[in-house]
Structures are given as C-alpha cells and as structure tokens.
C-alpha cells in the first residue's frame, strides 16, 4: 500500500495536525517505508483468529454510584491555558469548520 501527499494531508486533518510542504514530502516517504514494513502482517492467514484487545482476563468493574468529594474547580482549572470563572475558555466556535 502506498500513500500519497494527498492521503497524508487527509490523515493530518483527521489528527488535527499540520505540516509544511517540505515536511509533507519527507513524511510521505517515511510513512511509506513504515507501511511497507507493516504489510508483512499480510503474509499471515488470520481468517479464523479472534482479534485480541486485552491480554489479561478482565471483568466489568462496578461500584455503587455514590457522591464523593472531587477535586476543587480551581485545582482542575490550574493547568488551563485560558479560563473564566469556573470554565475553560476557548476561541469562538462559529466560523470554524
């Protein structure tokens, strides 16, 4: 599988990342080298194999739905780059894509 600069632009949009034209070229090349290596997986027939998403036996963890003390709002907002009162502040949403 080969990806093109156009594919890279599309993935970058999905990931909310941007690259300069020069970076896109280098990146597309590196990306293809990595994908070519990953294509190795297709040598294996896995038709009857169940996908594995967790390596240890896990069961659902449930607990009583009790109100407990949580972190104070000022603490939670401590790392926010921009805030107002008890809210995270963001640039205007209207006009965005």
């Amino acid at each position: 599988m080969k990806v093109t600069i156009k594919d890279v632009e599309y993935i970058a949009k999905l990931a909310r990342l941007e690259y300069s034209d020069e970076e896109k070229k280098t990146f597309t090349k590196q990306f293809n080298t990595i994908l070519e290596y990953i294509d190795k997986l297709n040598e294996l027939n896995t038709d009857d194999i169940e996908p594995l998403s967790h390596v240890i036996e896990l069961s659902n963890v449930v607990r009583e739905d009790e109100v407990k003390q949580s972190l104070p709002v000022e603490e939670v907002l401590k790392n926010a780059p921009s805030k107002t009162d008890t809210f995270f502040k963001v640039p205007k949403v209207i006009g965005g894509t």
Binding site: R16, L17, E18, V90, P91, K92, V93, I94, G95, G96, T97
Partner: peptide
C-alpha cells in the same frame, strides 16, 4: 488562533 479548529491544529 482564528477559531477553535485552528487553535486545536
């Protein structure tokens, strides 16, 4: 940033 998406990116 111009807007929210631009800020994220």
């Amino acid at each position: 940033a111009e807007d929210l998406t631009d800020m994220y990116t």
